[in-house]
Every structure is written in structure tokens, then in C-alpha cells.
């Protein structure tokens, strides 16, 4: 009973649609492949252990130790988390548990808008406003430092964390809240002692996604973190991050030379870090969604 056009249909389904479906996997693979293709030859002229363990990044003198860059990225991310975690969790609680519907929808829209502000704009604000202001306020040498970058990053990671956390709070079954209220707990006690703990895995997954976002953020930190490749714990010091280094130095290198390849290896490092974080949080979020009850059967 083969119809005309059946063959075309089969071709579209089996070739076009199927291939497109697997495209994401192909692209992830290609990213890895082409970063390695440009970057891996770096280790023919530079030792892997020195790249990983050295504490100095001075490309001009041929020294490529990634530690100061990693510590810069971690410091900025840590500062960002200190600010964004309480902000995001409180916002999520307010949106999910306290705000009346109209305000809730408004705040959710604002969160999305915040998520969409281009990172150069944050960088610009850091340069012209936040940096100089903090410099004056704290009486420090330069406003371009880990603190300024971290604060800006906090606002950039906020929507990610808050929206995942809000989703997790919404997923807490009503019956749980009602049970707590029926036992005489106040609304706030219910939120803090029942709802938030029940949603904690989701909130943690959101924070991890936020970490991934902060570590990978480029333009803002390149513009405001200060750019010194140094290992420090002080947020008031200028630092240089992995992302900022790649973006700033790629413009100055000669294609194919050692420095160029080193930057690709930084890219690989970044890729692997975010891959790890995102896989983990993806697994957690997936588990929550499944626990929430997947798709039901066929019905009657």
C-alpha cells in the first residue's frame, strides 16, 4: 500500500529530522574537537604540569601557569555568590510564597529582563558607576577589582538562581504546606521550616547553574576585574579571570604560536569546568522534575 510521496516523507523523517535531533551532540563534540585541534599542540612545547601548577601567567616571558587565572575566576565567582545567593533565595521565596499574583508576574518578568541585559552593559556600568563609587566609598587604590566584578556578576547570576529556586519552591506539594499550617505553624515558619527545606535540592541546583554562569561570564569581568594575574584572597585586589584572559589576549596573539594555543587550552579548562557543573545540576534538576511526577498513563 505504498503511496506516492511516501519516500520523500521517509527521507525527511529519517534523514533531516533525525540528524537535526542529534545535532546538539555533534556540536558539543565539535566544540571539544576544534578547541583541542587549535590548543593541544601547546603541550608539545610546554609541560602540562607547569600549565596546571605554575603560579605565574606571563605570556611575554613564555610562562603560562593557569593558577592565578583560576584563582581569579574562583574569587570573582565566590564574591558573586555571597551577594547573589541570599538575594536570589529571598527573591524566590518572595515571588513563590508571599507576593500576590500580579506582583509575582511582574517580578518574574523583571527577572527575565535582568537576565537579558547584555554583559557589556554591566561592564560599562562597572567602569563608569560602580567602580568609581566603590573606590571612593572604601578609599581603595582602584575600583576595578574582584569586588566590583563580583557584585555585577551577582546581578547576572541572580535570575538563573532565582528562577530555578522559584520553580523548586513551586514544586513543593501543597499538602506539605497545609500539613504544617494545620499543625499551627505560622506562614513564615511553614516557609522556612517546611517549604524551603523541601525545595533545597532544587535551590542547590539553581546555585550551581549560577556558578556555571558566573565562571563563564566574560565581558563584564574583562572590563572591570582589573586584569592582574595574581593569586589573592582579597576581593579588593584587581584580578584576572580565565574568561577575561582569553578574550583580552586573543586579539594580541599571532595565530598558531604558543600563546595562541595556551589561550585555547584555557578555553578547554573553562569548557570542562562548566561541563562538570552543568551536568551535575542538570542531573539534580532532572531528578526533581521526575519526582514531581512525570507524564501519566493513557487515561481511561
Amino acid at each position: 500500500m505504498l503511496r506516492r510521496g511516501k519516500l520523500v516523507e521517509l527521507a525527511i523523517e529519517k534523514v533531516l529530522i533525525r540528524t537535526a535531533g542529534y545535532l546538539a551532540v555533534v556540536i558539543l563534540f565539535l566544540i571539544l574537537l576544534f578547541i583541542l585541534r587549535e590548543g593541544a599542540p601547546f603541550f608539545t612545547s610546554y609541560r602540562l604540569d607547569e600549565f596546571i601548577l605554575r603560579a605565574d601567567w606571563y605570556p611575554l616571558s613564555g610562562r603560562y601557569g593557569m593558577l592565578p587565572l583560576l584563582s581569579g575566576s574562583l574569587l570573582v565567582t565566590a564574591v558573586a555568590l555571597i551577594f547573589s545567593v541570599p538575594m536570589a533565595i529571598c527573591s524566590a521565596i518572595f515571588i513563590s510564597e508571599i507576593a500576590p499574583p500580579v506582583l509575582r508576574n511582574l517580578l518574574k518578568v523583571l527577572l527575565e529582563i535582568l537576565a537579558s541585559v547584555p554583559s557589556v552593559v554591566f561592564g560599562f556600568i562597572g567602569i563608569v558607576l560602580l567602580g568609581p563609587w566603590l573606590q571612593q566609598l572604601l578609599g581603595i587604590r582602584t575600583g576595578m577589582n574582584a569586588l566590583t566584578a563580583g557584585i555585577l556578576l551577582a546581578f547576572m547570576a541572580l535570575p538563573t538562581i532565582a528562577s530555578v529556586a522559584e520553580e523548586a519552591l513551586q514544586a513543593v506539594p501543597r499538602s506539605l504546606r497545609e500539613a504544617s499550617l494545620a499543625l499551627g505553624a505560622s506562614r513564615m515558619q511553614t516557609i522556612l521550616k517546611v517549604t524551603v527545606p523541601a525545595a533545597s535540592t532544587g535551590i542547590i541546583a539553581g546555585i550551581m547553574l549560577g556558578v556555571g554562569r558566573a565562571i563563564g561570564e566574560t565581558m563584564t569581568v574583562m572590563m572591570v576585574a582589573g586584569g592582574s594575574p595574581q593569586i589573592t584572597l582579597s576581593p579588593l585586589e584587581p584580578v584576572r579571570t580565565i574568561t577575561g584572559t582569553i578574550a583580552a589576549e586573543m586579539g594580541e596573539v599571532v595565530m598558531g604560536d604558543q600563546h595562541y594555543r595556551a589561550l585555547f587550552m584555557l578555553g578547554l579548562l573553562l569548557f570542562l569546568i562548566t561541563l562538570g557543573i552543568n551536568t551535575l545540576s542538570g542531573v539534580i534538576i532532572d531528578r526533581i522534575r521526575r519526582r514531581q511526577g512525570g507524564r501519566g498513563g493513557q487515561g481511561t
Binding site: 558539543l28 566544540i31 563563564g216 569548557f271
Partner: peptide, 13 residues
């Protein structure tokens, strides 16, 4: 994971 790959890595790619 692709959604989480930093944009600068897309640039390198």
C-alpha cells in the same frame, strides 16, 4: 550542557 557552555568558548570554537 550546550546552554551552559560559556559564550567565550563558543567564540574559540
Amino acid at each position: 550542557n550546550l546552554a551552559g557552555v560559556p559564550s567565550v568558548v563558543y567564540g574559540l570554537f
